[in-house]
Write a protein that binds this DNA or RNA. Structure first.
Length: 465
RNA sequence: GGCGCCAUAGCCAAGCGGUAAGGCAAAGGUCUGCAACACCUCCAUCCCCAGUUCGAUUCUGGGUGGCGCCUCCA
């Protein structure tokens, strides 16, 4: 397995700390709103990375946090007239609604900042003891100048960062690069007791503290969007490595942006589509398909038209999947022919090609093309004369590969309401009597109800539009 | 100013030293009462210029055109 490591700026062979096991952490959402598809990309990408690692035999512990203590949440609570806790609980719930629809598996754990305050305080204390943090009247800052490796992830020198930094007026920090580890309580904000007085943690410290608690001091993979490289991940390194003196993460994996008209989609720019909104017109699996059809590091432009392309492509996968189910239900032949035996033996090439391409820095675009090649093969090789074992072999390889990507996972709807079933019967009778006018009328009528009919050699089939 | 990314068919998108995967769309065909699905056929020399090489979309240099980070952001 090769992964592009932001730290070294090249693809590297992945070697876990502990043989057969992977510890990975990905930054999760700040839960103050529905998430947008820019947020969805890392969720999907790291879900696929995790699935693939598991597929290839690793035991993966995957942590994705919820940031539930944050300015944006506090603002939202004021706007909605509810407590910050109510805001975060609401959007954690909504996160799972959307994540489930996107086919994202639950992480091994979804830790919350609010439940790790003691660990956060401990880490800040350690940093203070090591001279890497300083307290000014209840606000504790990280002393960036004291951490020599600062900038190693974002490839910036402290001096360059300083020259590019915007100057805050009346800033009490020693350097514009210093960032808050602990923020002194302000009126109307949630707070916790600490050695520095009442207050709450800064943004970056949570990931360092929770990662350490749940995965240990050094982890295998840390992931997130490219926009987190600086300052968030740079700061995490400063905190984690500063406090324990060991490497924080061996592989830093970052996904590219989602753009609208070639410009980055972001909440601050306002040019974003929430996943919830897209769910009104598309099955969210199309979003997953859309994102996985491109390599995770390349920027992708988003539009409804492009999403429709992905949805149509996904449909092709489902057609093949359901066709095999259909044929299996009817298959009477259990005897595998010699020709089928030869064909079954060739299926392994798809699996090999799939794994090879996924092992090359999770090239899902290429992996999907392998699946489409498999689909063409299945469609042309399997028919009503195929034996059960041949059909099962096709179905197995198809499921195995699509499951790794989390695509085409849904089963066909089988319950048809009586009225529709009756209409289909009537249409069949009309067709038999060559009353095509009537049969076409019924077909149109069903289409209006969202039922698409297809007359095949093997009989009439229906599906939801 | 510092750091970094990208430019492949109508659209999307892999490949990254040996003469261009896949999807969507379009066109022609097979199947079908028609349609749909499926299948077959067809659709590019890879932004420009100069190097390196037997050979470059793929490496190097220079252009041109986009984009991102350096401030909250996935």
């Amino acid at each position: 397995m090769k992964l592009y490591n932001t730290l070294t700026q090249k693809k590297e062979t992945f070697i876990p700390i502990e043989k057969g096991k992977v510890r990975m952490y990905a930054c999760g959402p700040t839960v103050y709103n529905y998430f947008h598809i820019g947020n969805a990309r890392p969720f999907i990408v790291f879900d696929v990375l995790r699935r693939f690692l598991e597929y290839t035999g690793y035991e993966v512990t995957f942590i994705q946090n919820f940031t539930d203590v944050d300015d944006k949440i506090i603002n939202r609570s004021h706007e909605e007239g509810i407590t910050p806790k109510e805001v975060s609980e609401k959007y954690i719930h909504e996160y799972f609604v959307d994540a489930d629809a996107l086919g994202i598996h639950r992480a091994s754990a979804h830790p919350k900042v609010s439940e790790h305050i003691p660990e956060i305080i401990d880490m800040i204390k350690t940093l203070e003891e090591k001279g890497l943090a300083y307290n000014i009247d209840g606000n504790v800052y990280y002393h960036v100048d004291q951490f020599k490796a600062y900038g190693k992830l974002s490839k910036q020198s402290i001096d360059d960062l300083k020259s590019g930094a915007r100057i805050d007026i009346n800033d009490e920090k020693k350097s514009p690069l210093d960032f808050a580890l602990w923020k002194k309580k302000k009126a109307g904000e949630p707070y916790w007791e600490s050695p520095w007085g009442q207050g709450r943690p800064g943004w970056h410290i949570e990931c360092s503290a929770m990662s350490k608690k749940l995965l240990g001091e050094t982890i295998d993979i840390h992931g997130g969007g490219q926009d987190l490289i600086f300052p968030h991940h740079e700061n995490e390194i400063a905190q984690s490595e500063g406090s324990c003196g060991k490497p924080f993460a061996n592989y830093w994996v970052h996904n590219g942006y989602i753009n609208i008209d070639n410009e980055k989609m972001s909440k601050s720019k306002g040019n974003f589509f929430t996943v919830r909104d897209i769910a009104k017109t598309f099955d969210l699996e199309a979003v997953r398909m859309f994102l996985l059809m491109a390599h995770y590091r390349s920027p992708v432009n988003f539009s409804k038209a492009l999403l429709q392309q992905a949805a149509t492509a996904l449909e092709r996968l489902y057609t093949a999947k359901y066709q095999m189910v259909f044929l299996l239900e009817k298959a009477a032949n259990n005897m595998v022919s010699e020709a089928e035996k030869l064909w079954i033996a060739t299926l392994d090439q798809y699996k090999k090609a799939f794994i090879e391409t996924m092992e090359d820095d999770i090239n899902t675009a290429d992996a999907i093309s392998v699946i489409f090649e498999l689909v063409r093969d299945l469609n042309s090789s399997l028919d009503e004369h195929s034996s059960k074992p041949a059909l099962l072999a096709g179905q197995t390889i198809f499921r195995e590969l699509t499951d790794v990507l989390g695509l085409a996972v849904k089963d066909k709807e089988t319950n048809l309401d009586a009225e529709v079933a009756a209409l289909i019967e009537q249409r069949q009778a009309a067709r038999k009597a060559k009353d095509f006018k009537r049969s076409d009328e019924i077909r149109d009528e069903l289409l209006a109800k969202g039922i698409v009919l297809e007359d095949t050699r093997e009989g009439v089939k229906w599906k939801k539009a």
